[in-house]
Amino acid sequence: MLLIHCPYCKDDRPELEFSNAGEAHIVRPTNMSDISDTEFEAMFFMRDNPKGIALERWRHAHGCGRFFNVARNTVSDKFLKVYKAGEPRPSDAEIEELLK
């Protein structure tokens, strides 16, 4: 069972309190109605499945209830960075650094 740091509760909590909510940083366009089929496909259907760092959303569902983002190494299962929803995506350089 993972131990996940919640950036809102500022505490490590057991995985049983959380639920995964898929890939992070997929922004719903503000002009949603006007996007093309291709853009919709990319936004709604296509997901990465990286070996290495995955940026994904988790919800502290049985805790503070907040959605937040994490950088998780899919090889080691380690949570390398946890950050609040709305905070910027880690840069490529930062991801490189996290992987070390």
Partner: peptide, 13 residues
Amino acid sequence: LNHMEDYLQTEFP
């Protein structure tokens, strides 16, 4: 409720 919270927190905060 989860679906609504998701939109509220992450798309329309």
